[in-house]
Deep mutational scan, measured.
Amino acid sequence: DHDVVPEDKFQETLHLKEKEGCPQAFHALLSWLLTQDSTAILDFWRVLFKDYNLERYGRLQPILDSFPKDVDLSQPRKGRKPPAVPKALVPPPRLPTKRKASEEARAAAPAALTPRGTASPGSQLKAKPPKKPESSAEQQRLPLGNGIQTMSASVQRAVAMSSGDVPGARGAVEGILIQQVFESGGSKKCIQVGGEFYTPSKFEDSGSGKNKARSSSGPKPLVRAKGAQGAAPGGGEARLGQQGSVPAPLALPSDPQLHQKNEDECAVCRDGGELICCDGCPRAFHLACLSPPLREIPSGTWRCSSCLQATVQEVQPRAEEPRPQEPPVETPLPPGLRSAGEEVRGPPGEPLAGMDTTLVYKHLPAPPSAAPLPGLDSSALHPLLCVGPEGQQNLAPGARCGVCGDGTDVLRCTHCAAAFHWRCHFPAGTSRPGTGLRCRSCSGDVTPAPVEGVLAPSPARLAPGPAKDDTASHEPALHRDDLESLLSEHTFDGILQWAIQSMARPAAPFPS
């Protein structure tokens, strides 16, 4: 592969990997390779389809078979030569091979799209000592099968071997295949498990690692696999990028399955594409389908809103127990993405979901129960707010008499603000006073009005108090039968009158 990737590009890729991570280095090298001529790309395919690569990765054979028959990708048995050289000459001794072996032994695996480039050397060096003999053996194999790289107009793939297949390693990572398949204008990513390549439709969760975000852009890794992070704060999961590491605690105790298979379609829109997988259930989501939507993949363990709600429900009964003089119970939860139609709101002032922060849900004790107040519409209280300059209440639009249902020339009671006709409430011909108009209920007259088809109010509507207090003497005590009587009149003013009279009014101040 030294004929494909020059030394300066190799060093530039290593520097970019240390600065921005393996995914960015892979993407940059792939983009550079696509700008080369067809001879360089053909050399790339020839390096990929060597015999030892085909033996190690069985899924490469179907890719090789898909090439046109007129494309010669065979390799000479006596060494490598550029395709432009007409004579089959043995190339001179390859010093770059020693360079590659020494550099890969030092860096474990470079971040390139060629056999030198995919593992994360920093994480491997940190986690190597417990498994040094086995990992050293794996390093000797890295130059042979560490990076199976493929690129063409139909298929483009980048393979990364790992030393996680050490025997006896619980939940060992089998390997990473960062794979971009450009077929019919689409893009897919796969993962390699035990020599087999699994596409998103049959993606397997190998051991402790999972394909957290099938994305090839942005600074985030394709698999949430930063070796420096180790395990999740809650004892979460091992990262795919942690090559040759000792077994780590796999999943939280509440995880239903340690080796679950995540779905390959969004649980909201039932469509495929780039998904984020939940650590607590097999569901996966688009970032845009979450509520609120996320802009980037959160670091650490992530769970959907259903799993978060289940966790909150487990903690909430203990938080609601009476604990005198104790601060509110704080339950730190990872930043969760909410699927459509589901929402768990945190306290005000918290950062938005999706940031690399930890939301704190506070379970406050329930407030003391209070008697429910009568629910009145805002339009129902409008007549009470229509007060004239002299303190006389004006008529609201649409006000109707509670007896006849007519809204023409209605009066407004100064005591309960109900609309009424003087002739309907006082049919006996009582003279109307000039000021202080009161309806039949507030004036103490319980004589029913002779209106055909309208039920008369119940005599129990009024329960006047002592006459010594004029204001308190007109406080009506309405009961269920009074409400039914008012409802039978089918008037809004009657219902409003009952609601206003049912509310307690402050006692009249004593004259000074």
Rank of each mutant, 00 (worst) to 15 (best):
R303M: 04
P506S: 08
P506F: 03
C386F: 15
S473D: 11
G349E: 12
L294D: 09
L487P: 01
H490R: 01
G429H: 09
P334I: 15
C404F: 03
P459Q: 07
I297A: 07
Q313S: 11
T331F: 02
T357E: 00
V329I: 14
G388P: 14
P292L: 12
P368D: 11
E265Q: 12
E452S: 09
E475Y: 09
C289N: 09
P298E: 09
L384N: 11
W302K: 12
P256N: 02
E274L: 04
S488K: 01
H382D: 07
G494L: 02
A396N: 11
L287W: 06
L359T: 05
L364H: 02
D493R: 00
C442N: 03
V451L: 04
P448Q: 04
P368T: 06
L294R: 11
Q393E: 11
L483E: 01
L483W: 04
I495Y: 06
C304R: 12
H259W: 10
L275W: 00
C386G: 09
A472H: 00
S502C: 06
P292F: 10
R438S: 06
A366I: 07
L486F: 07
P328F: 12
F510G: 05
P256A: 09
A310W: 15
P292D: 03
G280L: 13
N262Y: 11
P282H: 10
A371T: 10
P328R: 10
F510L: 06
S369E: 08
E330M: 15
G444Q: 02
P383C: 15
A428R: 08
A340D: 10
R323Q: 09
C413Y: 01
R270T: 14
A399I: 05
E342G: 10
E265C: 01
A251F: 13
P249I: 14
L381I: 14
G273N: 12
K468Q: 11
P348S: 08
C269G: 05
R283E: 13
L337H: 09
P374C: 13
A366H: 15
T311S: 11
C307E: 15
R440E: 12
R423I: 11
Q242V: 10
G388E: 15
G434E: 12
L308P: 09
P457H: 05
Q393W: 15
S379V: 12
A366N: 07
A428H: 13
D409F: 01
G336A: 08
R412H: 04
L359V: 14
L437N: 11
K468L: 07
G349W: 14
Q392M: 09
G444L: 03
C413K: 03
C401K: 01
E330P: 08
R505L: 15
E320F: 13
Q325I: 11
P317G: 12
D271G: 05
T471A: 15
R400L: 07
G280Q: 10
A353G: 06
L455M: 09
L359E: 03
H425E: 06
